[in-house]
Nucleic acid binder design. Sequence first.
DNA 1: GATTGCCAAAGGGCTGAATG
DNA 2: CATTCAGCCCTTTGGCAATC
Length: 296
Amino acid sequence: MGMTTHTAVLARRAYKQTCFYSCTQTFSSISCVFATLLFRNLQWLDRVSPSTPLHGRDQPLSASPQIGEKKLLNAISGLSRQLTQFAADVNEQFTLVNSRLLSIEDRLAAMESITVWKILTLRREDGCTILKLRKQYAVFTTLRQIVGATNRSKAACKTYYETVCRSFRYKHPDLASQAEAVKRSARSRARRKRLLEARQSVLAEDEVGLWKCATIDLMSDEEDGIVGGVSGWIVQPPSFRSQELTELCATLQSRLEAIPKYRATHHRRLQNGLNSDRMPLVTYSSEAENRDFMVL
DNA sequence: GATTGCCAAAGGGCTGAATG
DNA sequence: CATTCAGCCCTTTGGCAATC
């Protein structure tokens, strides 16, 4: 049994209920305002007729004739002002709730449209072509208009449509190698990103300056593999990384691996002496290149 | 010039596996 | 049972080209 624990389930459930919670929070705050108002006025009335105990409010209020009436009128007047203010507050809070409900309606509309789209795509048969998908999308667009999709749901539908088309393209046998390359590249990048973050966590003050030039692409690639009968990650540093940064990476890595917890929770990194064949991104500025990369 | 469609990179959320 | 890691899936974003 892994992460499927009670706490994890609760956390996920809590996340999914965020919108509902924010609404109930608003209602709760309205209740608080109302309760506070009532409490204050009860206190105020207590001060007006101190001789009248709380449990004796059902008794006649004419104990002190003229002065009592005047104070009571003032109390009513004050209460009226506070009720006016309260009404304004409630109005504001309900406007807030209303806008949130509209937002939820938008999301529901988007989900409804996406569900229709998913049903359509699930119904497609083997050998379905992009053309067929486009026809389905036309049907879907019509349905979307019928359900009155908003701008946001349109955007969600559009992006989901693009995702479906992309994954469909990648399922085509001719693009299998390209799809695999994309997948491998994404996995490798995620590993490099984690590596960058881990190393950053053990950075010393005097290393911060040099580390500023470190990016995800300047971290080593880590491919699954076996070296000398030992399985783990084969480390292949980028060929375009400067010697200085390479040495800093080695220092930080040894610092990380000195931490038992890190060693226990990360794959073993194996060296095979080869550099990664990955090329630097063209978006790097020439200035940064001169500063941070060694000449190939 | 505005709109639409395509494409790819990157990020975030979610989930399963492993571990203490 | 809780935490961490790794990977997948989906969304967002932005660039580019074609079309209106």
